[in-house]
Design a protein around this nucleic acid. Structure first.
Lengths: 232, 232
DNA sequence: GTGTACATATCGCAT
DNA sequence: ATGCGATGTGTACAC
């Protein structure tokens, strides 16, 4: 269990879902404890130029005489189970450093769509007075509807929740509505597209499909949630 | 222009599109020449636990007396233009290494969808005898159709090309067809969904929409292309 | 294992 | 800048 950092001149060839080639240049190579290998340039945030995800196997060999003559010092071959290969020819090595980490305590996240969905499930009145939750993650054969509600008249409403409301969210909800409206137990089902922010094109498409849009104030909703907790 | 590698015990807090917290543990921190910062554990291939993409600004300060007492040696704050912040509190530093890279010659790719599209544009007879190319990347107000063809009867055909044919590709083509069929210059327009592999659910949806599916043999097509070249 | 949706998605291109 | 589509997307979760 360790992380190996290598900075070296290297030439890289990937063959798998596509073919890619990197000419010889100085780069950073990271080998992680899970076996994954990534080759980084000095830009592009965290995205490597080339990589192999775990599970995979790294084999390091000596270069043949011809390659050695041309300055190749090590030959790395990384191979995945599916047969994808990443070949790295190392030239001059500027750093080769090995480090052992402990088990990472892991990441704590907040504010993602799941939380938004939870809050809205707990406060269906956000959508209208007297509206009630039927089911979170209501399963249809083509995927889960985020929220199934009943409005003040008892009519079904399918809600699609997004952080940012874009066109494919509307498409998604449209597919669900088409399907649900064929079910006599549910029909007629209205659609509501709920998001912290809704792009104009998504709003236009929603309107065209008879779907109503709701912009959600996440902080306000979280505030309501806290207020509720204080009452108990 | 340099890459800085730090291995250190650190505690991380991110506030931006979401909030996230990492308890103190030994990790790898990479600062790239573009200013981007990423914090890695020893697993998850190339994805960091936390990061900040360029453009952003890194400020390093001394910890206050209280923090220093608790073992904090450096306080890093990374701030983006949008106000997202990444705070890193460093404890013991195990490695701090700085390296200058040259300009990377860059990645050469082959085999992606673009190539598939090019090959199909050059060989419209793949779809049927006598079929001809009208336009690659035919622009509609809602996006470009990959290929616009005419079949042996002169009727228009819109082709959506994918490496892997999934449900959203069918949705995309459906939107284009709806729009194009409102244009009396083009209507009636048939739809063809072409991919190296088509998922059953996508095929079902396509059939339901009256769109025909074509599974493309990339190697065969590339072979045809090479054969053509040899003729000249 | 397949299917589906989410992601601080990232990235590139075209308008 | 914004919209839109592709990605060797990766990842989690339900069936």
């Amino acid at each position: 269990m360790h992380v190996r950092l290598v900075i070296a001149d290297c030439q890289v060839d990937y063959a798998g879902r596509l073919s890619a080639h990197l000419p010889m240049a100085k780069r950073l190579i990271i080998v992680k404890a899970d076996g994954s290998v990534s080759v980084h340039a000095d830009d592009r945030a965290y995205k490597p130029l080339n990589w192999m995800s775990a599970p995979c196997r790294l084999t390091i060999t000596e270069p043949d005489a011809d390659s050695a003559e041309l300055g190749v010092t090590q030959l790395w071959e990384v191979r995945s189970r599916e047969g994808d290969t990443l070949q790295i020819r190392l030239g001059e090595v500027h750093l080769d450093s090995d480090h052992t980490f402990g088990v990472d305590p892991g990441l704590q996240k907040d504010g993602v769509e799941a939380h938004l969905q939870t809050l809205l499930a707990e406060h269906p009145s956000t959508f209208g007075d007297g509206w009630q939750l039927v089911k979170r993650e209501y399963y249809t054969p083509i995927g889960p509807v985020d929220l199934l509600l009943r409005d003040h008249n008892g009519g079904h409403v399918a809600v699609e929740v997004k952080r940012r409301g874009e066109i494919d969210g509307v498409e998604q909800l449209t597919r669900y509505l088409d399907l649900m409206n064929r079910d006599p137990q549910l029909a007629p089902v209205q659609g509501v597209f709920a998001a912290q922010q809704i792009k104009p094109q998504a709003a236009t498409l929603a309107a065209d499909r008879g779907i109503s849009c709701r912009v959600i104030d996440y902080d306000l909703l979280r505030g309501m949630d806290n207020a509720d907790e204080r009452l108990f």
